[in-house]
Computed example of a mutant assay.
Amino acid sequence: MTKKLYYDSAYLNEWSTIISGTVEREDGIYVTLAETAFYPHGGGQPCDTGYIGELPVLDVVLEDNEVLHKVAQLPDRAEVNCRLDWSRRFDHMQQHSGQHLLSAVFRDLYQALTLSFHLGSDYATIDIGVPELSAAQMAEAEQEVNRQIYLNRSITSYFVTSEEMARLPLVKLPKVTEDIRIVEIEGVEHNACGGTHVASTGAVGMIKLLRSEKQKGNTRITFKCGSRALDEFNDNVRILGQLSAKFNTGKDEIIDRIEKWEHEQKLVQTELASLKEQNDIYLARELLSALEPGSGLITHISDTRALKDLQSLAAKLTALTDLPVLLLSAAENKAVLAHSGAADLSCGAFFKAHLGEYQGKGGGSDKLAQAGFPVWQSAVAFYDFAQKQF
C-alpha cells in the first residue's frame, strides 16, 4: 500500500521513491508508488499534478485505499524522482483551508451549516443551509473571516480513533470509522477532513466573497482565497482604471457618468426610432406612388436595412395596400414577404415550398414570413424568382 506523504506534510513537494506497480486500462496507464505526495481527487478538492521522473502526471485517483497515478507511458526505470506542481498544490491548500474558516464563520454568525464544497479551477463554492443572505450579512461574514486570517491561528491535522473522535466538538460526524483524520483550526473548529491545508490561517492570505445565490432552497456562496483573491482584485482595479480613462473621470464618479451616458443613449435611440418611423412612412408612400398600373406585387431592395427594419417597412406598406410586399436586405441577405390578409397567399407556405432551392432558411405565418440566405447571389436569385410568381 502506498504511503501517503501528503498526510505527513502538505508542504512536501519533491521526493524520491520507487514504482511499486502498474495498471493498464482502456483509459490509460496508471502507476503506483511506494510513497506519494500526489493528492488524489476527494472531498471536493481536485487532484495534484506534477511529474514522476520526466513523465507528466495526468490524473490521480484513490481506489481501495491505493493511490493511482495516470501517465502517458510507463517509466523506463523503477527508481524515480517526483515533484508536484507546487503552485497548484498551494492554491488548493489556500482554497480548502479558506473554506473551512469560511464555513466556521457562517456557522457561528448565522447557524448556517455547510452542506457541500466545490473547488474549481477559477473559484470555489460552498452551499450553506439558509434560504438566502442579505448584502449586509455577506459583508459581515467577509469581514469576520478575514479577521480570523489576520489572527494567524495554527492549522494542524492528525488521526484519531473512534473513541477519541467522540470527545471532539465536531460539526459533522464523518462517514468513516477508521483512519479518521481531523483538521483543527486553533480556537475555531475541529473538522474531519482528508484534504491538504496550509499551516496557519495567515497563509490563506485573504478571502473575497463574490456572490450568493439561491440553490435548491439553500444558498451558494462563491468565493476566492489567497492568490486567486489577489488576482480578482487586480483584475477589478485594471477594469476600473480602463473605465476611468474611457469616461475621463475618477473611479468614484464612474457610475454617475455611465448613468448619464445611458440616459443620453436612450434619447438618441428614441430620436433614431422616430426618424426611422418617418422614413418608413415616406418610403412606403414613395413605393406606392411609383407602382405601375396592374402590378400585383410591391418590391424593394434595401442596402442598409436589417431584418427588423424590413418588417417595420412591410407593416407600413400592408397598412396602406392589399398587395403583397416583397423586400430584400443587402446588408443581411434576408427577405420578407407580407400582405394585409386580403391576398390569397400564405407567405409561410410559399417560403417553405421554395427556399430550399436557393439554400434559404426561414418561415412564418400566412401574412408574414422571413428568410435568410448564405450568400447574396442566392438571396437575389430567390428575390427574382418570387417576383415572377405574382
Rank of each mutant, 00 (worst) to 15 (best):
S212A: 10
V204H: 04
S200Y: 11
E178V: 05
I182N: 08
P169W: 05
G202V: 04
R211H: 07
I207L: 07
R167D: 00
V171C: 11
E163S: 14
E184F: 05
V198A: 07
E186R: 02
I182M: 04
T196H: 04
N191S: 10
N191W: 11
E164Y: 15
E178M: 13
V171I: 15
V198F: 08
R181S: 06
K175P: 11
A166T: 02
T177Y: 14
A166Y: 13
R181N: 07
I180H: 11
T196L: 01
V160D: 13
T196A: 03
D179R: 15
V171N: 12
H197L: 03
E186D: 01
V198R: 11
G202L: 04
K208H: 07
E178L: 14
V183Y: 07
M165K: 14
L168Q: 12
P169T: 11
E178K: 13
I185H: 08
V198M: 07
V171F: 11
P174N: 05
A192I: 01
P174E: 13
H190D: 09
E189A: 14
P174C: 05
G195M: 07
E164N: 09
L209G: 01
I207N: 01
E213W: 03
L210W: 00
I207E: 00
K172A: 12
E178T: 10
P169L: 07
L210H: 00
E189Y: 14
E184K: 05
V171G: 14
C193S: 09
V171T: 08
K175C: 09
